[in-house]
Each structure stands twice: as C-alpha cells, then as structure tokens.
Nucleic acid binder design. Structure first.
Length: 329
DNA sequence: TGCCAGGCCCTCTTTAGGGCCTT
C-alpha cells in the first residue's frame, strides 16, 4: 500500500483551496497506518547492492509540454540506451530505459521564467505542481568535499512507481558508515550508479511524473542548508543544469511555524522530534534515505494540515536553486 | 598559524555569538 493514493487532479478551483489541500493530505492520514503495516519492502533484500522491494518495471509516460514538443522536433535524436530498472525505487540493471541525451539537454533549456510567479498566478495549482519528498545520505556535511551515497524520493500524489531509491557510488572514501550503515563495499560494485549516471535517470523519472507544463516541488528536511546545496554541487560536478521548473521547500521553517503556533507542544524540530511528535513509527533504519523519506512524507502532510497551508502558501514558502549561494572560491 | 560546512534563528543582539539541523 502506498502512502499517497489519491489523485491530485481532484483538487480543482480556487474556492476549494484550503479544503482541497487538507482533503488531499487527510486522505493519506487514513492510509499511513496501513502503509506501515505493509512496509516489508523497506526490509527487502539487497539487489545489486541496492535496497529494494517488489519488482516493477518503470515505463515512461509521455510528457507533452509545448516547449518539449518543439525540442523534440529540433534535436537530432541520438538515443543512448542505459539498462536500468526501478524496483519500486531501487535502480538495478535488468531492463532497458531509453535516455535521449539531446532531449535531456533541451529539457534543461526550456524557457527561463519566473516559476513562482507563474504558479502563483495560476488558479489551478493542483494541475501544475507535483510534490516530491526526498532525502539523501552523504559521506559528510561538506558539499565541496563530500558526495551523495544514497538518494530516495516519494511522489506524494502517488500513482505508479511513486517511490524511487538507489545507492550511489560517490567515488570517494566513506568515513561515516557508523551513521547510515552504508559501506564502500555496498556502493563500489557494478550495479550501483555514479551521480553522472543517476542524474539522467532521475530527470527522466521525475519528468514521467510531471504534469503537462507543470512544475516539481522538492520537499526535504533542512533542504535549504543541506540537501539542495548538495544536489546543486553534484549537478555542477556533472556539468548538468538544474531543470528550470524545479522549486524547493524546506520543512524546517514549517516546523518552526508549528512550534510557535498556539497550543503546540513541539520543542525540537529535527526529523526524529517531528516523527515522535506525530507518533509516526520508525520503519527501517534512521539515516537511510527511503526510511527518512517515508517519515518526511507523513510529517509534511501533518504539517500542512496543522498549519492550514494551501498550495499558494507552499509556493510562497518555496525557493529556487538559484537562491542558494555558491561558495566563495 | 589558521582552517576544519553552512544557513537560519534566537537573544543576555544587530560592530555577535551560540545552538540547531542535515550526514
């Protein structure tokens, strides 16, 4: 049972703004216990060094923004075939996924516009924004000297293959295995992608969940200070630009809002503190990406409910990759 | 000798410093 099973497209019209978002999240409140009661996939076997669950082949969905249609007509299509399969989140090497490099490049070059302005001015936000909770595990805290070793996400609107997870070969030593339990032996093997191999897959995966002409809202805990700067550094090292239709949301400011709200007994704002505050049980190991993503997904839904947040409210609190300061050289 | 992660928030503050949060 997936956490998010309701379709976001039911959220229609500005006069339902508050209730629609609440209804969407609240629908998931009823499913979270069932989610945890059937979460054996988090304890699944290691497949090619990757934590995975039941096998489901990922099939691409057509995405038909006008810009991309134009891009498809323009490019000379040299298609590279990377053999990958998503085991409900774990990347393995058994099936074929066609990655068109030119298409990805064009995808990155879709008009540069004021994403937040466009979303804010659009009355039908539900049909524009895909909300994705994500988490990374890294070799340390330095975005310059450390690398990502695990990536996991969950598309909160649900649907087919709504979760994605993989270990990542950071191509460097791992000195903090005591934190997450991920060792060099686990990532230094053929089935585990490097970031430069994972990013094209990630772009395609996210694109397959993107609404036509829509946007992706990435949600993580402490994303402004940690996850997003790390992601930007990895994209930069791979000479790949962040898609212009991505925006980010940090749940820490939301937790602070809740902490200051009347009647709230929340005293700390760590992921663990929020999980305990909401009575969400830990499934799997803390500091493993997918486990933290599942916790975050439920915490985020509860936060938006408690703070009575609407989608415009979330967009207002979001930020862009360009808002992250680059380290002075 | 100096650096060692970086951003945000709070307060005994703003010409600053300490704590929290992420791995």
């Amino acid at each position: 049972m997936r956490t998010a099973t309701m379709c976001f497209s039911i959220l229609q019209g500005p006069r339902f703004k508050i209730h629609t978002l609440v209804n969407f999240w609240s629908g998931n409140f009823h499913s979270w216990t069932r989610t945890y009661s059937n979460s054996s996939k988090l304890h699944g076997s290691i497949v090619n060094g990757l934590e995975g669950g039941k096998s489901k082949k990922w099939t691409r969905r057509p995405v038909t923004t006008k810009a991309e249609e134009r891009a498809k007509r323009i490019h000379s299509s040299k298609t590279s075939s990377i053999r990958h399969e998503v085991f409900d989140g774990a990347v393995s090497t058994n099936a074929t996924l066609n990655i068109n490099k030119t298409e990805i490049n064009q995808f990155q070059k879709i008009q540069y516009y004021d994403i937040q302005k466009i979303i804010a001015e659009n009355k039908d936000l539900a049909n524009l924004v895909t909300v994705v909770a994500f988490d990374i595990e890294t070799t340390g805290f330095s975005r310059e000297n450390d690398g990502i070793i695990e990536f996991a996400l969950q598309v909160l609107q649900g649907g087919e293959n709504s979760t994605f997870q993989t270990l990542v070969n950071p191509e460097r030593n791992i000195t903090n295995s005591h934190v997450h339990g991920i060792t060099k032996n686990m990532v230094d093997r053929p089935g585990v992608p490097r970031m430069r191999e994972l990013i094209p897959i990630l772009l395609q995966y996210v694109k397959s969940h993107q609404k036509p002409g829509g946007f992706i809202m990435w949600v993580a805990h402490n994303s402004r200070s940690f996850d997003v700067p790390f992601l930007l550094s990895e994209f930069s090292r791979c000479s790949i630009e962040l898609p212009p239709n991505w925006l980010f949301l940090d749940t820490i400011p939301l937790a602070r809002e809740l902490m200051k709200s009347e009647g709230s007994k929340l005293s700390k704002i760590s992921l663990q503190a929020l999980r305990e505050y909401y009575g969400i049980p830990l499934i799997g190991s803390a500091h493993r990406a997918m486990s933290d993503v599942r916790s975050l997904s439920l915490i985020f839904q509860r936060l938006t409910y408690d703070l009575k947040l609407t989608m415009p409210g979330l967009v207002e609190r979001s930020f862009l990759g360009s808002d992250i300061k680059k380290k002075k050289s």
